[in-house]
């Protein structure tokens, strides 16, 4: 395998802390917040959209050649591990949840704390899928309350964009 060539494209309005582990071809969109100690490993390229939040010790991996696209307003909570080749918008991956490369998320999906999503065959979660509980059960959310949740997500990201630079050194993109 050829060595991974680093190429970081970080939007000037994104907040990416110095102490993150980035490897490979990574594009981070405007307003996205990456906490210290997060890991993004791009064997194939990874493109993260706007206003996402990647928390501490979250791990995002793309093992494939194709681009892994992550949409807008996604939240990756502490210690989660995500290898899904495609993630839509406004998803929540809770603390220590694990998503295998066989699953794709659309939008408004919620993976509960500690859930393991590892379907044997490729699977795409439709909008508003909720995975919860110790045995990772699935159900569909009615979507009621999503506007309020998005509102909260935006405020969350805005607060972090304001506070994180006060206590952390930031990383800039290659061409910034």
């Amino acid at each position: 395998m050829p060595p991974i060539k680093d190429k970081f494209t970080i939007h000037s309005k994104a907040v990416v802390c110095q102490d993150v582990d980035l490897k490979g071809d990574i594009t981070i969109g405007a307003g996205t917040v990456v906490h210290p100690k997060a890991t993004i490993l791009a064997i194939g390229p990874i493109v993260i959209g706007q206003n996402c939040i990647v928390e501490e010790s979250a791990i995002i991996v793309n093992r494939r050649k194709e681009i892994m696209r992550i949409g807008d307003d996604n939240l990756f909570e502490i210690g989660c591990r995500v290898e899904s080749p495609s993630i839509g918008n406004a998803n929540t991956i809770s603390t220590r949840a694990r998503l295998h490369h066989t699953v794709r998320l659309t939008s408004y999906c919620v993976v509960g704390p500690g859930c393991l999503v590892a379907p044997i065959q490729d699977e795409t979660f439709e909008d508003f899928t909720v995975v919860y509980g110790a045995s990772s059960e699935y159900r569909l959310w009615s979507g009621r309350g999503k506007v309020q949740e998005m509102d909260l997500r935006r405020k969350h990201a805005e607060y972090l964009r304001e506070m994180l630079p006060k206590f952390n050194r930031l990383r800039r993109g290659d061409n910034a």
């Binding site: 919620v110 509960g112 508003f128 909720v130 919860y132 509980g133 059960e137 159900r139 959310w141 009615s142 009621r144 309350g145």
Partner: peptide, 13 residues
């Protein structure tokens, strides 16, 4: 309405 933060059940259902 009543809303479950964990499994997203809500009583409007």
């Amino acid at each position: 309405f009543l809303y479950c933060n964990f499994c997203r059940w809500d009583s409007a259902d």
